[in-house]
Amino acid sequence: MASIRMIAIVAAALVSLTSSQSFAFDNLIFVAGDCGDAASKVVRETGGQLLSAQPSNDGRSCIVTVLVQGSGERPRKVTVRVPM
């Protein structure tokens, strides 16, 4: 997934290429970071299969859900809240 910094750089470049007016950084909208790193960490730690990863409502953590295989049992769904 793309990082926020990279998205901001690409957006700034596109605006500067398509507009003759100077670009003001107060026009940028900063969004919460992506949950890719958090999801990778949870999958690595649990050995599970990623089902979903999304930012929480407060924007400071990610809610990651993985499917963890049990030994001889049905897989279980595990949901973890990870700080960004």
Rank of each mutant, 00 (worst) to 15 (best):
G72K: 04
A53Y: 06
E73F: 14
N27Y: 02
D58L: 07
Q69T: 12
F23I: 15
V82L: 04
S22M: 12
S40C: 06
S56W: 03
V66I: 09
V43S: 03
N57Q: 12
S3P: 06
A13M: 11
V66K: 01
Q54C: 05
M84I: 15
A12N: 10
R5S: 13
M1P: 06
M84W: 00
L14K: 13
S20Y: 14
G36V: 10
V10I: 11
K41G: 07
L17C: 15
T79M: 08
T79Q: 07
F30H: 10
T18Q: 13
S52P: 05
I9T: 10
M1K: 12
V15H: 13
L67W: 03
L51P: 05
P75R: 02
Q54G: 11
G70A: 05
G33C: 00
D34N: 14
A32Q: 10
T65M: 05
R81E: 05
S16I: 14
L50T: 03
V31S: 03
A38G: 02
I29Q: 12
R76G: 00
A13F: 08
T65W: 07
M84E: 04
K41A: 14
V31A: 04
K77H: 08
R60G: 07
T79E: 02
A11K: 14
S71W: 09
A39K: 00
V78W: 01
L28Y: 09
S19P: 10
F25H: 14
R81I: 09
S61Q: 01
D37S: 10
V31C: 04
A13N: 13
A12D: 08
R76Q: 00
E45H: 01
E45T: 05
P83Q: 03
A32Y: 09
V66R: 00
K41H: 11
I63T: 07
L67N: 06
I4Y: 01
V15E: 13
V68F: 03
R5W: 04
V15A: 14
S61P: 08
V68I: 03
A39L: 10
G36D: 06
G72A: 15
T18D: 13
E73I: 15
V42Q: 02
S71F: 10
K41E: 14
P75C: 10
L67Y: 01
G48V: 02
I7Y: 03
A38P: 03
E73V: 14
R44Y: 12
S19G: 14
M84C: 11
V43F: 04
V78I: 15
T46Q: 02
G48N: 00
I4T: 04
S20T: 10
V31Q: 01
C62K: 00
A53F: 01
A53T: 06
S3V: 03
I63C: 08
L28N: 05
V42A: 11
